[in-house]
Amino acid sequence: MTALEVRDLCKTFHRHRAVDGVSFTLTAGRTVALVGASGSGKSTVARMIARLVRPTSGEITLTGPDGSPVPDRAYRDHVQMIFQDPFASLNPFHTVEHHLARPLLLHGRSRAEVPHLLERVSLSPDFARRRPHELSGGQRQRVAIARALAPGAKVIVADEPVSMLDVSIRLGVLKLLDRLQREEDLAVLYITHDLATARHFSDEVLVMHQGRVVERGPSDDVLLRPQDPYTRRLAAAAPNPDTRFHLGGSS
């Protein structure tokens, strides 16, 4: 079973410890949420896992479906990333077809799979001909998800995948990710600053603050009954109309 283990990951930029001793494991069929404010180091973790940033120290080991370690050159067949801003993560010069066909070809697949990929993210096949500026934010992010799926990756790092989208379409994209995770048995790392969606869409939550994981555990435990003072402040800071109108639990 595919699993990605992160052990004691550190990253130092110009003497500043951006990530300090972070460890966790991603396993198939589970979503782990990494929450924290901007500057907490969560995006740097994502970029290290995606191999865009080299860790200062620590290990990232990937186990393939057959249980054996995945060699370096095949790493990207298995681990892919979804970026925050779908307006920046698609090249304005190229068509949707290009964005999906390239990763397919690079990982030994055929460009004939493009329509199928689009279907998986609930887009019709004629989107292949369009260019990014002809798509809405939500459609762009679906294309970005399809691109991450193209190599057949089983580990997906989603770095704030909905924070740049209009509020009314955010849940739709998160539900799509959740469906894919369950249907295709993906291991997902969901990086966000939004505690509410972190709780609803993940099995496990890690709270990061100044490069360190300050609290971790099953989502409900961490977010409903936080122990760490920072997590408590974070949970209390989110706008919550319930308190004003004296309502408890349900929304």
Partner: peptide, 26 residues
Amino acid sequence: NRDYVAAARVSGEKTWRVICVEILPN
């Protein structure tokens, strides 16, 4: 530093291809 360049690298594109196909046209 655009994300689409990062995305091309994550999908495994070679450096020369990133320069010629992703950056140069823009």
